[in-house]
Computed example of a mutant assay.
Amino acid sequence: MAEGRKLVEPLFSVVSVVLRVMVGVVVVGFVLSLFVDGVHVGWGGGSACVTADGVSGSSSDTDAMFGAREGVDVSSTPQYCIADPSGSQQLLEVLRDLPSFILMVGGLLLLNRLLRGAARDGAYTAQTAARLRLLGWWLLVGSLVSEVTQAIAQAALLATLVEGGRATVGNMWDIPFLAIFTALGLLTFARIMQEGVVMREDIEATI
């Protein structure tokens, strides 16, 4: 275990610390939300705000307000806030952040499981390759689902705050290129690792 752990350091220690800190923050925040006014974790308790990405405007008053030099135009993107949101608005507010949080926590848990298994059983095993493949699929599918879910939730929330059809998912959807290419890289390395495991087993069988 000790020898195998050297192969996965310092990532193993960093992931373990981050997971502990995240669990501690969530637990402390939840406890404080029960007893301290103004502290809220998760559902309800505060205002709901959304920035209307893709909608902008400018005026001479805006230019003067932000100290623009002569000949310089300042464009502003409006942010809509409601102090007392309804239950559905609170749900949409939560859905704007929850998917990415679940993606991150799930990814850290899978990564921690991968590193622990590699430290215990060895890096070049079928189990390690399978866990690496699972992490890759989680990141690939999860990043796309998270981005789409959050974009839909933001557009739906904005639609409850503005008049007209200015809330569109297209203005709020960003393709997570980095996550996609990272996931594809993990899946590729998982396949390479699996082939290496098969070759090693064949060599051991012939000796």
Rank of each mutant, 00 (worst) to 15 (best):
F101R: 14
L108N: 10
V21D: 06
L158I: 07
G38D: 10
S86E: 07
V31E: 02
G24R: 10
R20D: 00
G142W: 00
G117W: 00
G38K: 09
S13F: 05
G57C: 07
D97V: 12
F101K: 14
R116A: 10
V28R: 10
V74Y: 09
D174T: 11
L34R: 14
V162F: 04
D37W: 01
L161F: 04
T128R: 04
Q90P: 00
F181S: 15
L95W: 02
E70C: 05
G4R: 11
S13N: 10
V31G: 05
V28P: 02
S146R: 04
G29I: 02
L144V: 15
L157K: 12
V17P: 01
I180R: 11
A179R: 14
L161W: 10
G142F: 00
T206I: 10
A167G: 04
A130V: 01
S86W: 04
R166E: 06
T188L: 07
S59V: 09
Q194D: 12
S33T: 07
D73I: 14
V169T: 09
L98S: 07
F177I: 14
V14H: 06
L98Y: 13
L158N: 06
L157Y: 05
M172N: 11
V74Q: 08
G185L: 08
D202E: 15
E147C: 08
V31M: 11
W43L: 13
P78Q: 12
V18F: 03
G185A: 08
